[in-house]
Write a protein that binds this DNA or RNA. Structure first.
Length: 446
RNA sequence: CGGGCUAUAGCGCAGCUUGGUAGCGCGUUCGUCUGGGGGACGAAAGGUCGUAGGUUCAAAUCCUGCUAGCCCGACCA
């Protein structure tokens, strides 16, 4: 993309309403624009980041065995009357009427809808397990939306639902999603810690929230530093191996990690040596829980069991706040100059900065680098605006492009361009070809 | 939903107390000089002062209603 032809309304000053850093930076970088309280338009740069995150979520869901579907945003009230939640849900649910005066709603979640689909479509226990998921806009009429897209009323969520014949199967499905979430967040360059969540009326210990540690997080978290050091790395996962998955889950849940909701100071102090006690802030980006037959019983969603008689599904649901992740990643990755995108989710991976637009040699070198980057499959941004160098650096750093290729007449005289890492500031002078090769190696692209 | 606050140009703000020509900075446009970390100079464009009503010769300014938005708290991907 040529910056001169992009739509990116950058602000030099911070809009007054933005309090937290991700919101400020997203507004300044022209990623979003507020439409009304808690509702945002996604401008090109923000939309690009959102789609990259969404793509990783899709990929990791499917690797873990979940199957993508797409359910509507508008749902029938009748479906929710079956589960009993139409009255229970409260004013957070946006209720609307269609022209025939039928009660409809903008879905805040999809348990009812997916249970109806599974109940109608899955006939035998031999078709199980099945995990279906979608990534769809949700609406929850929050009392007080805030922090930009971090707590909007309309938000993009990945919600998945598992269907099994018994508790053992449901546990396997739960663990699949647990490990899948670890992989998903790790791949985005995030340190997400699973924490025991409040299981509410259903009870049991099969519910976890995944939180990203960030100073600006909304929840206070308490954890054993050991758990923050865990990493899946490049380990190959055998998703069919129930015991193996259980082992991973056990490793990640053995150490103390809780939010203020479930925190018990006495247990914390007893279980965790003082040197490893970490008190921090976290942003919830995922939440998984097992809810057994809660919806399947209520909605009569059953399959033929091994004895031929109908058995209600054992289910769990698994959410990732996709749009919230955009903000969360920025919260966890920024400095005083702007955002610092992890390579895996960066809207643009490399920026070519032409220090002297209009200089024949500099222009030619930039065009060549830009073409080559595109040919090699990079998401490249070429700052070809007729601006001074300082202005270009400020813009590119604000946007948080992980790598800068700086091209100017002085360097070109020596046959070099400068490759600079946004996060570390590390800079090396290389020939254009070497710089391209270095980037290709960095991103694992041949 | 309880408490606090705001609404004036794309963004940040002043003007309101004491009613009388709507202003500043940034950004934008044009020109010139510039050009390795948000350049300088000159010129210009851009505003139903949130909205409806009231008081007044006269309302951004005073009064009333409404709407929208923000912050703190309780709740949530």
């Amino acid at each position: 993309m040529r910056l001169s032809r992009y739509f990116i309304p950058i602000l030099k000053e911070t809009p007054a309403e933005a309090q937290i850093v991700s919101h400020r930076l997203m507004l300044r970088a022209g990623m979003i624009r507020q439409a009304s309280a808690g509702i945002y338009s996604w401008l090109p740069l923000g939309y690009k980041a959102l789609r990259k995150i969404e793509a990783i979520v899709h990929d990791e869901q499917q690797k873990a065995g979940a199957i993508p579907v797409l359910m509507p945003t508008i749902q029938s009230a009748d479906l929710w009357r079956e589960s009993g939640r139409y009255d229970a849900y409260g004013p957070e649910m946006l209720r609307i009427k269609d022209r025939h005066d039928r009660d409809m709603l903008y879905g805040p979640t999809n348990e009812e809808q997916i249970t109806e689909i599974a109940g109608a479509g899955i006939r035998s226990y031999r078709d199980l397990p099945t995990i279906l998921y979608h990534i769809q806009w949700k609406f929850r009429d929050e009392v007080r939306p805030r922090f930009g897209i971090m707590r909007g009323r309309e938000f993009l969520m990945k919600d998945g639902y598992s269907f099994d014949i018994d508790k053992a199967g449901a546990t396997h499905s739960y663990n699949r999603m647990f490990v899948s979430y670890l992989r998903t967040f790790e791949r985005m360059g995030l340190k997400a810690v699973p924490m025991r969540a409040d299981s509410g009326p259903i009870g049991g210990d099969m519910t976890h929230e995944f939180l990203i540690l960030a100073d600006t997080g909304e929840s206070a978290v308490f954890l054993d530093s050991d758990i923050a050091d865990l990493s899946l790395g490049a380990d190959k996962i055998d998703w069919e191996d129930a015991e193996g998955l259980q082992g991973i889950v056990d490793r990640w849940t053995s150490a103390y990690a809780r939010t203020d909701e479930t925190h018990e100071e006495a247990v914390f102090n007893a279980e965790v040596p003082e040197a490893r006690r970490v008190t921090a802030r976290g942003i919830e980006v995922g939440h998984i829980f097992y809810f057994g037959t809660k919806y399947s019983e209520a909605m009569n969603a059953k399959v033929a069991g091994p004895e031929g008689s109908p058995v209600a599904f054992e289910s769990g649901s698994y959410g990732i706040g996709v749009s919230r992740l955009v903000g969360a990643i920025i919260e966890a990755n920024h400095d005083d100059k702007g955002m610092i995108w992890p390579e895996a989710v960066a809207p643009f991976e490399v920026a070519v900065i032409n220090l002297k637009q209009g200089d024949a040699e500099a222009d030619a070198a930039c065009e060549s680098l830009y073409d080559n980057l595109n040919a090699r499959g990079f998401d490249a941004l070429y700052d070809d605006r007729n601006e001074r160098a300082g202005s270009k650096f400020a813009t590119i750093d604000l946007i948080g492009v992980p790598w800068k290729l700086i091209v100017g007449p002085r360097g070109l005289k020596e046959g070099v361009v400068e490759l600079v890492n946004r996060r570390t500031g590390e800079a090396v002078n290389l020939s254009p070809d070497e710089a391209l090769n270095r980037l290709s190696a960095q991103f694992g692209r041949a």
